[in-house]
Amino acid sequence: MTKIASHRGGTHLWPENSRLAFRQTAALPVELVEFDVHHTADKVLVVHHDATIDRMTDGKGEIGRLTYEQLSKFVIVGAAGETIPTLDEVIDIFAPSPVDLRLEIKTRPDGTAYEGMEEAIVERLVASGMLSRCMVTSFSLERVDAFRKALEAAGHNVSELLGLIWLCSPAVIRQVGWIGVDAALAAYGIFEIGIRAEMISVLAIAPLSDRGVIIHGWAAHDIEMATRMFDLGIASFTTDRPDIAIATRAKQEMR
């Protein structure tokens, strides 16, 4: 079954990556919630898309240079006074629900890693009992590899996750081609990839699928793209409009 992931908690329905969005998503008939994780200056794991708070809050600054206390002074635009949630708070919302996690590891504004963040994420997922209910993703192959190594160092392995996925941008695909993408996956020993919805086709993914690579999608925000994901049997996909994806799946099931 193709799993639906509510992207940032349903970006086009509620303020992205907010507790409000996550509470609403927890009540939807979707399989996954997608969200993004950063590290504050004092090593608190927080859920926010951008590496800065300028776009989505009433404050300004880089998350990695702010302490959690400083970050907590700013509120998310349109979220009724809510502040940026921690990873633990998001886990608390979804742990009692049937909706699993699709966690994206983010980086600093210049693309460099947050020191020790992968290890910290592993620790929280294990401690909360959510490791087996989590997909982990990143646009950086290095971060995907770092998470796998952190997992193994903690006495766990990739098979305990719902997935470990390299999110491959259209720019990378255009630059190196599908052969180059496959070579990069093989070099890191990664067997799951996330591809932007409009770039997924039978012809494009056949060589990857033949090698056993699991295909996930992202940015399937309308009926056309959601239908494509279901028709192609993609493992999972993210959408800013989970309501549209839910309705599209219902119509397909009726047929």
Rank of each mutant, 00 (worst) to 15 (best):
T2N: 01
K3T: 03
I4D: 00
A5Q: 02
R8N: 05
G10P: 04
H12V: 07
E16H: 10
F22W: 08
Q24R: 15
A26T: 09
A27H: 08
E34V: 11
H38K: 09
H38E: 11
A41R: 15
H48A: 15
T52Y: 12
R55N: 15
R55W: 13
G59I: 10
G61S: 15
G64H: 09
L66G: 05
E69R: 13
E69N: 12
L71P: 03
K73W: 12
F74W: 14
I76D: 05
G78P: 08
P85D: 06
I93C: 12
S97R: 09
V99I: 13
D100V: 04
L103F: 14
R108D: 07
P109I: 12
G111A: 11
G111D: 10
E118Y: 12
V122H: 04
V126N: 10
A127S: 14
L131P: 02
C134A: 15
L141N: 05
E142Q: 11
R143P: 03
A146L: 15
N157C: 11
E160K: 07
W166T: 02
W178C: 03
A183E: 09
L185K: 00
A186R: 04
A187W: 04
G189D: 01
A197Y: 00
M199T: 05
L203S: 14
D210V: 12
V213E: 01
W218V: 01
W218D: 00
A220C: 14
A220Q: 04
H221I: 09
E224R: 13
T227Q: 13
R228L: 10
R228S: 08
M229G: 00
D231R: 12
S236Q: 01
T238P: 03
T239I: 06
P242V: 02
I246R: 04
